[in-house]
Amino acid sequence: MSKASEYWMANIKLVALCIAIWFVVSFVFGIFLVDQLNTVRIGGYQLGFWFAQQGSIYTFVALIFFYAYRMNILDRKHGVHED
């Protein structure tokens, strides 16, 4: 496998992981399993409701920075970083 396609495969893996988490916190926790999660409470929030209106957004932010951080490492490891 060439160097470029190794880098690309590693990138795809990372993206797939992040997109899976993106899908789970918003669609699964916030919509599909909202009733089940709502039986759990954190403070005044029902957990499903919290994911739908707060938790998913916090996770999105964390995910993008995680992705950016891991990509920078990947860029260096494969020697394709800028400058």
Binding site: W22, F49, F60, I64
Partner: peptide
């Protein structure tokens, strides 16, 4: 949100979650 309650979550998630797609794809 005030009038739709939980159902308005679609706008909260919908108008933020797109940035994950944008950043990675």
């Amino acid at each position: 949100i005030a009038f739709k309650g939980y159902d308005a979550s679609v706008y909260l998630m919908g108008w933020t979650g797109g940035y994950v797609l944008l950043a990675m794809l």
